[in-house]
């Protein structure tokens, strides 16, 4: 059989260990990479952007499929839990983390979400990763494990550049831990060239924790900087203030000022920069939190 241009051009080995210990042993070797849903990895293999010596499929490891939620401990998402499982099988996600729920519903198509995982979305470390901005607004943490042991890191400290992160060879994301800080409302606004199956031109997650009480507004963006970006400066500015048109205007300007977009096939830097100002206002308006004076 002729190997056509779409086929994966180079050889590698494949392993599917049943235990975490075996997997971590295998991954400690240079050239070995983990996969979950393989939706990013297969595309990169085909495009010759990834040439691993071996692939360690983590899907057979039982403990990575765990999901739990409680108000005391928050939500713990095992690395192997797919996005559709979060959307369809765990109503706690929609109920307690609505902005995260909206964002994962916008990832790819139904078929993609039957494979795609949040761990893979984070591991891939694209500035466009849709699950990340809402997780940043919810103060998510990662449990990382390797042969040497485990550590917990803040998601905001994980990314170091496009496709880059702090993971060491042999270290994997074991689970994503999302604290529960009270009820929240908000919106994930994703602009893309087409509605389904496209990465974002820009994504904005605006989360309001405890909307009827302390009203803590948080904001994070995708595709406007080398890494997903949470804008603490804007949050500090707006904290405790009445949402007058002037305050909201200044908030949006601070968000915009913190971005450093580039031009690529999905949009120009000028468009992204403009939208980083327009969308925060639009979201606050659509949430009914303020009205522009007419």
């Amino acid at each position: 059989m002729e190997r056509g241009e779409y086929m994966i051009p180079h050889d590698f080995s494949y392993f599917r260990p049943a235990t975490l210990d075996e997997a971590l042993d295998m991954l400690s070797e240079d050239g070995m990479i983990p996969i979950m849903g393989s939706t990013d990895v297969v595309v990169k293999l085909r495009a010759r952007r990834l040439k691993p010596k071996g692939i360690v499929d983590l899907k057979a490891i039982e403990e990575l499929h765990n999901f739990s939620f409680s108000k005391e401990n928050g939500m713990v998402i095992g690395a192997a839990v797919t996005m559709n499982e979060l959307i369809e099988d765990h109503p706690e996600v929609k109920e307690n983390y609505p902005v995260f729920y909206q964002a994962i519903k916008k990832v790819g198509a139904y078929q993609t979400r039957n494979r795609a995982t949040v761990a893979g979305n984070i591991g891939n470390s694209s500035p466009a990763a849709d699950s990340v901005p809402p997780l940043l607004t919810y103060n998510a943490k990662l449990k990382l494990v390797s042969k040497e042991g485990e550590r917990e890191v803040e998601l905001k400290d994980f990314f170091t550049g496009p496709g880059k992160n702090i993971l060491k060879q042999g270290e994997i994301i074991h689970s994503i831990i999302v604290p529960y800080e009270g009820p929240s409302i908000g919106m994930y606004y994703k602009l893309s060239r087409i509605k389904a199956v496209d990465l974002s031109t820009i994504g904005v997650a605006l989360t309001v924790i405890d909307p009827d009480g302390k009203r803590d507004i948080r904001i994070a963006l995708a595709s406007v900087a080398p890494t997903p970006l949470r804008v603490f400066e804007a949050e500090d500015f707006i904290r405790g203030k009445e949402l007058t048109p002037e305050v909201v205007e200044e908030f949006a300007k601070i968000v915009q000022r913190n971005t450093s977009p580039i031009t690529d096939s999905r949009g120009t830097k000028e468009y992204r920069y403009e939208m980083a100002y327009v969308l925060p206002k639009k979201i606050l308006r659509e949430l009914g939190l303020y009205k522009e004076v007419s």
Partner: peptide
Amino acid sequence: KPMNSCLILAPE
């Protein structure tokens, strides 16, 4: 579940 068979490695 419906999935894209082009994104599944055969041994998976």
